[in-house]
């Protein structure tokens, strides 16, 4: 369960202070499917980054699964990201030098898993995401949809409790985007919390809960 209490994030632009997040209170239960929406600059990506422990709030407290994580050390936060959170980005963020299989393997390497078990899990994941015949290809040899599939495979291989997706279809054409969303929704079906940042209304409407952000504040919190 994700519990944010009075989370504030301030960016300093010269003399000006901009409230990217302005005293946000938010609770997300395990297994929810949440869309974070709003115009650009409304703070939706910042909210996602705070939830994913990539960004540190300037104020407020964040409890994840009943434990306060805001004041954990850098290494402890990294461990939580590794074990509980999977990120999916608009621009995929695959390592260009590594093959699809190696990109998917990265989180397992970081967690210090033995090579034999890594290979087994990577092969299973490749099969699950229908990427087996693309395993040895580098990102530059893959289509956009395939790249995002590799990225999602990488995000799920550690079996995280939450997947955080920031505009996952932003760089894909409509048809491929729908396929990628279906993939993410399948993961949600298996019980994973899914939080998607998007400015695409159609995409947002597919979620079971929509948060509308503006100027760092939650304007509406709608469940369907």
């Amino acid at each position: 369960m994700i519990e944010l209490t009075s989370i504030t994030r301030i960016f300093h632009m010269g003399e000006q202070s901009i409230y990217a997040l302005n005293h946000i209170d938010l609770e997300i239960q395990d297994g929810e499917y949440v869309a974070i929406m709003g115009p650009s600059g409304s703070g939706k990506s910042t909210l996602l980054n705070v939830i994913g422990l990539l960004d540190k709030p300037d104020d407020g407290s964040y409890r994840l699964d009943g434990k306060t994580v805001t004041d954990l050390s850098e290494a402890e936060q990294a461990q939580i990201r590794r074990e509980k959170i999977g990120f999916v980005f608009q621009s995929f963020h695959l390592v260009p030098r590594l093959t699809a299989a190696e990109n998917i393997e990265l989180p397992l390497i970081l967690s210090g898993l033995a090579a034999a078990e890594r290979k087994q899990r990577v092969n299973d994941t490749l099969r699950a995401f229908d990427l087996s015949d693309r395993a040895a290809h580098r990102p530059s040899e893959l289509s956009g949809g395939q790249r995002q599939r590799v990225a999602i495979a990488r995000a799920t291989i550690m079996q995280p409790t939450a997947i955080l997706a920031d505009e996952p279809t932003g760089n894909l054409d409509h048809q491929i985007g729908v396929e990628v969303i279906a993939l993410l929704e399948n993961l949600h079906q298996t019980g994973t919390t899914l939080i998607v940042v998007t400015h695409d209304r159609e995409l947002g409407d597919r979620a079971h809960r929509q948060l509308m952000l503006r100027d760092g504040k939650i304007m509406t919190d709608k469940k369907t």
């Binding site: 290494a75 990201r81 590794r82 990120f87 963020h93 390592v95 990265l106 989180p107 970081l110």
Partner: peptide, 8 residues
Amino acid sequence: LLKAIGAP
């Protein structure tokens, strides 16, 4: 990216 996927 390495930081995002949990590299300390």
